[in-house]
């Protein structure tokens, strides 16, 4: 595809702007900002990726993964500001996920140790982990707030913080994992995954594309479970003090 063709594709941007103006949705400005940002950000990433791929230098690969983790942490931690030390907890979770998945992929030689594989797969893993962290933190903080009386009851009867928060923690872990599991049940039937579609459009063998897509799906399952469980077990102790009291805004 040439830049001319890409410019023609801007028709797909004009249509929603016209629709927004006609229906008085007031989304014209936001749509324009979104389009401009996506063009600038993706072109910048494109040039950076090209540079990193050409250089084949591990330092640049590490640097890119670090930037991804930092950006994902910054985004996810906003949902858990009430949890003490949430920034380092999210960072540790994302680092563990990245190290775990890449160790398996590279250790078993499932993917080659090149930027072309490490960076896109890291992006998908870290991005998915970030969404999971946001889903988990949203639900967990809501569960803690709603069921404060149950937590207090269990503590008052001589339960430990872990026992007092167990139900809320499990509910939040489960509910954050459900979208990943459910979306995988209908994959291929309702929609073709983006990465697979991209490979097919780029001319790859569909079976090869399917194999890679399955690899990513398996990775995302691990990402979902490890992110939620790890973040959960790192987060809950900060809700209590050494006297086993539930901390509230004091």
């Amino acid at each position: 595809m040439s830049y001319v063709h890409l410019s023609i594709a801007l028709i797909f941007v004009i249509l929603p702007i016209i629709l927004s103006k006609t229906l008085n949705l007031g989304l014209e400005r936001d749509t324009m900002i979104a389009v401009v940002r996506s063009i600038v950000q993706l072109l910048a990433v494109g040039y950076i990726l090209k540079f990193v791929f050409d250089s084949e230098n591990m330092i640049y690969i590490l640097l890119m993964v670090t930037v991804m983790i930092a950006a994902a942490t910054q985004n996810a931690q906003k949902k858990g500001v009430s949890i003490q030390g949430i920034t380092w907890k999210v960072t540790v979770t994302l680092v563990v996920i990245e190290v775990l998945t890449q160790s398996i992929l590279l250790g078993f030689k499932i993917t080659p140790p090149t930027a072309q594989y490490i960076i896109p797969i890291s992006g998908m893993v870290i991005g998915n982990s970030m969404v999971l962290a946001i889903l988990f933190l949203n639900r967990f903080t809501a569960e803690v707030e709603t069921h404060q009386d149950v937590t207090e009851l269990i503590l008052s009867l001589g339960g430990t913080p872990k026992q007092a928060i167990h139900t809320q923690l499990i509910t939040a872990i489960k509910s954050s994992m459900i979208p990943t599991i459910e979306s995988q049940k209908t994959i291929g039937l309702v929609q073709l995954p983006g990465m697979m579609s991209g490979q097919i459009i780029a001319g790859a063998d569909p079976m090869q594309a399917v194999q890679f897509q399955l690899l990513i799906l398996f990775l995302l399952l691990t990402t979902a479970s490890v992110t939620s469980a790890m973040l959960g077990y790192l987060s809950y102790p900060s809700l209590f003090n050494h006297r086993m009291q539930l901390l509230r805004g004091k």
């Binding site: 009386d149 149950v150 207090e152 009851l153 008052s156 009867l157």
Partner: peptide, 8 residues
Amino acid sequence: GITLQSAP
């Protein structure tokens, strides 16, 4: 031991 008014 404590029994609160709204003990769940």
